Simulated assay, not measured.
Amino acid sequence: MIEDAGQIFSTFKQTAQGGAPLYLQLKKSIEDAVNRGLIGPGDALPSERDIALKADISRVTVRKAVQDLVKGGVLVQRHGSGTFVAPRMERVEQSLSRLTSFTEDMARRGMSVRSQWLDRGLYAPSPEEMMVLGLSSNELVARVARLRIANDTPLAIERAALSARVLPDPAAVAASLYATLQTGGNRPVRAVQRISAANLGEEDSRLLEVAPGVAGLHIERISYLASGKVIEFTRSIYRGDAYDFVAELRLSEPGNIGDRP
């Protein structure tokens, strides 16, 4: 916690005006302080109790202002640690025309990448995994789930499923799943992705360090070998405030039926 933060709340009761609800006035004061650089990314705010005492307002008012700022991405709350100014995040653009791994994609941008493992193991397949991967009920599925982190910012949760015949030892996956698949001659060459909007649940928002219910991107990818065989079924959640997916569109050849007015 920095000295400027305490000063902001000490002077709030002198600058508060009638009309707008107090929580909105407090919210604006904090936003202004962040925008002016009085408190910067990573700086801790005083506790709700301390803010209420300094600003001479109720803790309920403080909590409502802070929750609004967390939902807006201005602040982040870390369980057991407190409330902090959110890091300034440069949005990441990913092309929809290129099939790359997260590790490769971030490396091209000069970003340091690491993963937090959530799951690596062999399981009985779900009905959906059986259908997509073409598995029988007596086969096993390899599941690899990771929190993907770039420049110390959690960006995505990836949950991949593959046939255990392709990936008999999920623990062998290190930095890149695709690098592991390439070693065995099973790297996918094309994929079909479906992207939809999603409001993040409690667990996913905790991992991505955003407020529950904020907008995210749900991405379902089915990847194929050159033979046309499905090799990978991945369901991912990406932060909506950090990712832009970009597609290039071209006019079809003149004369196509679909092009005629």
Rank of each mutant, 00 (worst) to 15 (best):
V34A: 07
Q14S: 15
L99T: 01
Y178N: 02
A107V: 03
G19V: 07
L26M: 09
L225E: 14
L45N: 03
L162F: 01
L96K: 01
R165I: 00
R187K: 09
E93M: 05
A172C: 00
K64L: 12
R206W: 09
R78S: 06
E158V: 11
D119M: 08
I57R: 03
A171Y: 00
L135P: 06
G121S: 04
R91S: 13
D204A: 11
V246T: 09
T11F: 12
A156V: 15
R49G: 11
P127E: 14
A161M: 02
G255C: 11
L75G: 02
E202F: 14
L53N: 04
G134T: 01
T61Q: 14
G82S: 08
L162R: 00
E158M: 06
K27I: 11
S205H: 09
D152F: 03
R190I: 03
A145M: 02
T153V: 15
L75P: 04
Y224N: 05
S95E: 06
S126R: 13
A197Q: 12
P170F: 00
L167C: 02
P41N: 00
M130C: 05
G134F: 08
G185H: 01
I237V: 14
P154D: 03
A86K: 11
K64M: 10
P168K: 00
A44Y: 11
P46D: 03
L118W: 14
L133H: 02
H218E: 02
K13R: 14
E129N: 07
A33G: 08
L118R: 10
S227G: 14
E158S: 10
L207W: 15
L251G: 10
G42E: 02
A52E: 00
G184Q: 06
G184W: 00
R143M: 01
N35E: 14
N151T: 03
L38Y: 15
